[in-house]
Structures are given as structure tokens and as C-alpha cells.
Design a binder for these strands. Sequence first.
DNA 1: CGACGATTTGAATAGGATCAATGGGAGTGG
DNA 2: CCACTCCCATTGATCCTATTCAAATCGTCG
Lengths: 232, 232
Amino acid sequence: MRPEDVSGLRELSLFAGMADEGFERLSRAAYLQAFPPHVELFREGDRADFLFVVVEGTVELHASWNGRETSMGMVSRNGTFILAAVIRDACYLMGARTVGRCRLLMIPAEDVRAAFELDDAFARAIVVDLAGCYRGVIKSQKDLKLRTGVERLAAYLLRLAAEQGEEPEVTLPYDKRTLASLLGMTPENLSRAFATLKPYGVAVNGASIAISDREDLGRLAKLSPLIDAPGV
Amino acid sequence: MRPEDVSGLRELSLFAGMADEGFERLSRAAYLQAFPPHVELFREGDRADFLFVVVEGTVELHASWNGRETSMGMVSRNGTFILAAVIRDACYLMGARTVGRCRLLMIPAEDVRAAFELDDAFARAIVVDLAGCYRGVIKSQKDLKLRTGVERLAAYLLRLAAEQGEEPEVTLPYDKRTLASLLGMTPENLSRAFATLKPYGVAVNGASIAISDREDLGRLAKLSPLIDAPGV
DNA sequence: CGACGATTTGAATAGGATCAATGGGAGTGG
DNA sequence: CCACTCCCATTGATCCTATTCAAATCGTCG
């Protein structure tokens, strides 16, 4: 690993509090690897061999059953994924694939578990990370069970706007097919949902979405910190 | 707290590895309290004041938005709930209410966080517990996004049968209204889903459900360990 | 017995999925 | 540079699932 990558990692909350010795050992065991777009990193059901950290790019987590597939979440820069499976020494409940070009840090599961046993600060950092993941899924499940498709899209757009600095125009970070799956609908349905949002001041131009009246859209989306707040 | 209750708690994986001193302090700070059925323990959005452990009975976790409500999960004997909120010192993302009569252990959030800081074994036990919760929600989200209502019901019945010792007759642990919400449908729809399952050998008699042909139902439910396995 | 809540059933509607067909770039090869 | 192709996105039509509203039935608890 290049020194700059190592020092970047050291900043991550997961590793920040670790003892130097443990961090040293962990980063020696780790591989930093570049992946082209649309590569399958592993499939659901595989034994958890590695913990992943996204150094650059975005990874899609997905799941399937009986021939159907759905997107479960996206992980981007500085995010970790599949930590729970590694800790419990179990199989992955989701598959993972790269969205665009990616650089990923892969840490062998055994080494993570060893560090977890030895380093108390690391163990505590994992708690905080996992608690955050857990709360993230809970929010997404509330989104899914309590809102209709159109409402989910509206809320998604406003969250995206907040993330991108409240510009009047936001850019979808991945293609609509993926977005649809993430929001729990078909691509056709997403198109129609966009059309439904037109009277609320939403104009689509490829991946770029103009939101003319955030108030108006907000009345439909009814953002709640208990569903839409990032982090926490 | 009665000594028998304390010793029972000590067995829970969350507390099993704790140092005696820490456990002592934690159990001194805790309240064991009995609640009648259908009591609201706290509401979503409340600040996390207590960690709860179910000593006896069942608690429903629910969420609401814009006048709609849904059931997010059930916690029964020896389960903990709301651990993530306590650790992150945040607000509850879900509300909680008792289903039947309950005895609950309430541990002040501050004391849990103090024990978390001081006791390394406790911190590690929390990791394992949280990882389990996380994987539980992921499974439930897969169930929700990948299966139709009827399929979810079929899978639920088979999981219940496994839990209750593969008897030909299973008993629903709570009323159908709650079950419907848990499965992400309306009570009316649950009734119809039961009717749809009749040709698959499912006979309803109040809360008691007879499953005459588990094979047949299984072909519809297509249980997968990646969605339906308990624990892990 | 009567009242109430839970459950079931029926009818109408809405929301979402599927199937089919068309338009629109991005990339490829000539 | 242009034609071609492929894949994504959109649109239309239709179907199916699930929700809503309404009403009837069932059981249980006073």
C-alpha cells in the first residue's frame, strides 16, 4: 500500500483509535486493489473472507431470491461494508459489485477478528460503526414500509440536494435502473414517478434533476430526521 | 432485583463475559419492572434513556410517518432492544409497546455507556449483539423487497413451525392485525393471503394454523438460509 | 344479553408490475 | 465522419397486487 493511502485510512473512525501496533499489523495484511466498473466482488452466501473499505468509487450491495434481484444499498468513499458478517464469521447476506471504477481496501477476515480480539479501541470503534449501519437499515426499512414509491423518490431527491449543497440542480450518482431498484421499484415505475413529480417542480434532464421549488416538494416528501437524517 | 432475575441475566450473552464488578454496578443501576399489555414504553424520537432487556413477554417495535404506522419487529424473552440508540447516545428510531404482560429490565443509558467504556468484554459482546441485529434487519428487508405478501406469509408460517418444533399445527404468537403490519400488509390483505394459501394445505382456525403439507407450502415459500435462518 | 373489538368478506380503486414498442445517446467499426 | 448497434430510458396498454371503504360475522368480556 502507498503511504498516502495508509495515512488516509488511519483517519477513518474505524481505525483512528487503534494502537499503532495493531494498525500496522492490519495494514500489512491488507490489499489495496483497483477494480473496473461492474465487477462482482462476491456473491451473497459466500463465506466472509474479507472486510472491505471503499477508498475510492462506489459499491452496490444487492440481494436476490428466486430469480428476483434488488439493490440493498450503496457504499461510497470511506465506507466499510460487510463488517457484521466478518465479525460473526458468517456468510455474506448480500452480494457486492462495483458501480464505477473503484479502489478498495481488502482486509482478510481473520486479521480483522484478531485485531478485534486484541485491540480494545478497535472493538469499540466497530460498535459505533455497526450501530450506525443498523440505524441506517432501520431508516431505509421505514422509508420502504411507510412511504409510497413517489414519496420515496421525492424524499430521495431532497436528501440528495442536501448532500450536494442545496444546489437548484442535483445529479443522480448512478443510473436510473439502479436507483429504481434501490428505491424498491421498477425502472418503468421510476420514470412515472418522475413524471408525477413534475407538478411539484421537478424537471428531469438525463442524470441531472432540477428542483425549482424545494418547499413544494418538501410538502410531499415530508422529510423526517427519524428516516432521512444522515449518520446518527 | 430478585437474585433469580440477576442470575438469569448473567447468562445472557450480552453480560456473560462481563467482569463481576461491572456487572454488579450495572445491575444495581437497573430497574426490573412489570408492565400490563399494550403499554407504550417510549415513542420514536424520544431521547434514548434506557437500554431494555425482555425478561418475560414480548415487545413490539413500531414506526410511523405521516399518519401511517407499521410494525418493525418483535422482541421476546432474553432479547435486548434499542441498544444502537443507547450506544450512539441518540434518539430512538422506533417506538416500543408491550404486547402481552411483560417484565422488562431497564438499564439507564449512561450506565450502559459507562460499562461499555470500562469493560472490554462487554464492548465485544455488544458488537456481536449489534451485528446480529443488523443481519436480522437485512434479512427482513430482503424478505420485504424480494417476496410478495403471500410468499412472506408462507415463509413466516414455516419459520414459525420450525420454531415451534415442526408440529402440524402452529399458534400465531400475536393477533393478526399486528402480524399483518409486521409482514407489511393490511389486515384485510392478510386474511386474503391466508385464503390464497388454502390450496397449499393451510387451514386457519383463529390463532391456530394447521399446515397439512409442509413440502407443498415450502415450494411456494422457497425458504433460504440467507433470509430465513434464525440467528447468525 | 349486549357491546365492543377483531376478523373476514365484498366491491371499487389505486398503486405497482409486466409486456411491448419507441426514442435517445454512447460507443464501435467502417 | 457516419452508420450501426446496443443498452438505457421513456411511454403506452394491460394485468395483477394491494389498499381503501363498507358491511357482515364472530368471539369475548362485562
